[in-house]
Amino acid sequence: GTVKVQGITIKVPNPDKAYKIAKKLAKKYNLTVTRKGNTIKVE
């Protein structure tokens, strides 16, 4: 899958794990995490 952070896309082998990490970071930096299948977008 991929993770998008402010325009940066990161390929990740485990979208579930990445999503959990993204959620933690999002809370810390007051961002929104959206997930569509293997693509995770943080904005």
Rank of each mutant, 00 (worst) to 15 (best):
T32Y: 08
T39F: 11
K28C: 15
K23R: 11
N30E: 03
L31R: 01
G7L: 09
V3T: 03
V42Y: 04
K24R: 12
P15K: 05
L31V: 10
G7C: 15
Q6I: 12
V42E: 04
G37A: 05
I10A: 02
K41H: 13
T39D: 10
V5P: 04
L25R: 00
V5W: 15
K11V: 13
N14W: 13
A18P: 00
K36V: 14
V33D: 00
G7D: 06
E43S: 11
L25V: 03
A26F: 13
G1A: 07
A26D: 00
T9H: 05
N14F: 13
T39C: 15
K24T: 07
A22L: 15
R35D: 04
G37Q: 03
T9F: 11
T32L: 11
N30I: 06
V3M: 07
Q6F: 15
K4M: 14
V12W: 05
K20T: 09
T2N: 05
A26C: 08
A26G: 06
K28I: 14
R35Q: 06
E43D: 05
R35L: 10
T32E: 06
T9N: 06
E43K: 08
Q6G: 15
T2R: 05
K41T: 15
A22M: 13
D16S: 08
T32K: 12
Q6V: 13
K27P: 04
T32D: 03
K20P: 00
I8H: 05
G1K: 04
V5F: 15
Q6K: 13
N30G: 13
K24N: 07
P13S: 13
V42W: 02
A22C: 14
P15Y: 09
I10Q: 01
Y19N: 01
R35K: 08
I40L: 09
T39I: 11
N38Q: 06
E43A: 10
V42Q: 04
Q6N: 14
E43C: 15
Y19M: 06
R35T: 05
K36L: 10
T2A: 03
V33I: 11
Y29A: 02
V12D: 01
V12H: 05
I21E: 04
V12I: 10
T9R: 04
T32S: 08
Y19S: 03
I8Q: 04
I21C: 11
K27I: 09
Q6Y: 15
G7P: 01
K11L: 13
V42L: 12
K23N: 07
P13M: 13
T39P: 01
V42F: 11
K17I: 13
K11E: 08
I40Y: 03
G7K: 08
A22S: 03
I21R: 02
K20W: 11
E43G: 11
L25P: 00
K4G: 04
I8M: 09
L25I: 08
D16E: 10
L25F: 08
T2C: 15
P15E: 03
K11I: 12
V33H: 00
A18E: 00
V12E: 01
T2S: 08
K4F: 14
G7I: 13
V42N: 07
N30S: 07
T32M: 08
V33F: 03
A22K: 00
A22T: 04
P15V: 15
Y19R: 03
E43M: 10
N38H: 05
K27H: 06
I21M: 07
K11M: 12
K28V: 12
V42T: 03
K36F: 10
N30D: 05
T2V: 12
T39S: 08
K27N: 07
K11G: 06
G1T: 06
G1D: 05
A22I: 15
N38T: 05
V5D: 02
K17T: 10
Q6C: 15
K27E: 10
D16Y: 10
R35M: 11
K41G: 01
T34I: 09
T9D: 03
K4A: 10
V3E: 05
R35F: 11
N30V: 05
I10W: 04
P13D: 13
A18M: 08
K23A: 04
A26S: 10
K41N: 12
V12T: 04
K11D: 07
T9V: 10
G37E: 03
N30M: 06
K11Q: 12
K41W: 15
K17R: 09
T9I: 13
Q6M: 14
Y19P: 00
K20S: 10
K11C: 15
A18W: 14
A22D: 00
G37D: 04
K4D: 10
G1M: 12
T34Q: 03
R35H: 04
A18H: 01
Y29I: 05
A18V: 11
